[in-house]
Computed example of a mutant assay.
Amino acid sequence: MEIAIVGGSGFIGSRLSSLFVQDRLNFKIVDKVISGSFPKHTALADVRSVVPLISAISENSILINLAAEHRDDVWPLNLYDDVNIQGASNLCLVATKKNIKTIIFTSSVAVYGFAKLGTNESGEINPFNDYGRTKWEAEQIYKAWQAEDPKNRTLVIIRPTVVFGERNRGNVFNLLKQIASGKFFMIGHGQNRKSMAYVENVAAFIEYSLSFKPGIHIYNYIDKPDFTMNELVARVNKILGRSEKINFRLPYFFGLAVGKFFDCIAFVTRKKLAISLIRVKKFCANSVYESAIAETGFVAPVNLIDAIERTVKYEFLEDHKKEPVYYSE
């Protein structure tokens, strides 16, 4: 049986494909761009167009959907709906036509919005942005597909927290880069806690979920423990061989003002900037989640402390300039 990884040319998809090669699983990447790591495994198709998807995805496949519009600065805003919602509808149409019985969908903890500490899979759904909203609406589309044949169809919904790892150029990398540059300053008190997910562990859980039985399976994905921002910065400095002390802090209210200022510049210039109001708020917020994954018997292959050390050493202490990189939040 073939596994179709939709959106597989990106960060998680490339790590997942490497895992499938290692474990000798038959897979195809279905994406709007050719995979830099696995070009011979790639079929070109955009989730916004049904016909190319029908051509690219084989009969009786297992379908993994990683495709998403996810950045904080997407423009125009209707791209969230076109890719995340319409894309889900298109994939369900293809799944029905191609007699597909299993869909694995990577959603996001963004469906919970600024959630209460320790939010689990039964937490209140309250997205604060279009990304979280459209991920939640996509989940409903997949649930409707599964409900059409509940005894035979398997739906796995995985809601990762922020995913990081080697070669990713998202928010965690930007934080690590600031620390490594020596120009980092803390906004606020730094006692807010952050749940994180290492890409290799996320890929391993996706592979693990291939064996799930018919039904709907929903899991947050988090690697524990949850570090405070102070603890995370201190640990990174230690890996870099520096003092763990944070020398400069910016008051939260001033950080918000800076974020608003950069939003105005971005609006006028139509340029994507590294600083924004929503990113300041996300940086200073608690984002601590719980998960029922342990009940499945899954054990993450890499503990979080080792994952952070691997990433910091790879990005800032070793030479990997020729390796491809992936841009995300």
Rank of each mutant, 00 (worst) to 15 (best):
A67G: 05
V156Y: 01
A180K: 05
V199C: 03
K135N: 05
T102M: 12
S61W: 10
A110H: 12
L304P: 02
N65Y: 02
D263L: 02
N65I: 01
V50N: 06
T161Q: 09
F185M: 15
T119G: 07
K101P: 00
S108L: 05
C284K: 07
K282V: 07
Y131C: 03
T154S: 12
Y131F: 14
V172I: 15
D223L: 07
G241K: 06
V74C: 13
N201P: 10
T161S: 14
N174L: 13
I12E: 02
T154G: 02
N192C: 08
Y131S: 04
S58H: 13
L240W: 02
K98I: 06
P150Y: 09
S35D: 06
F205V: 08
I216R: 02
K313G: 04
S14H: 04
V202F: 12
P127A: 12
G10S: 10
V156M: 01
I62W: 03
I246A: 07
I218F: 04
N286R: 09
F173Q: 01
G132N: 10
A56G: 09
Y327E: 11
F38L: 03
N230E: 15
K260V: 02
I34F: 09
E323I: 01
H41C: 00
S122Q: 15
R15Y: 15
I64E: 00
W75A: 13
N65E: 06
K213F: 01
L19R: 13
K272W: 03
F283N: 03
P76L: 07
S122W: 04
S37P: 00
F185N: 12
M229E: 12
K322E: 15
I157V: 11
R167W: 03
C264K: 08
L155E: 09
G188F: 13
E315H: 12
I103F: 08
G190W: 13
A45I: 05
N78K: 06
D72C: 05
K271R: 15
S291D: 09
K40G: 09
K213G: 02
F128H: 14
A45L: 09
C92T: 15
I100V: 15
S107L: 03
Y219I: 02
D81H: 11
S122E: 15
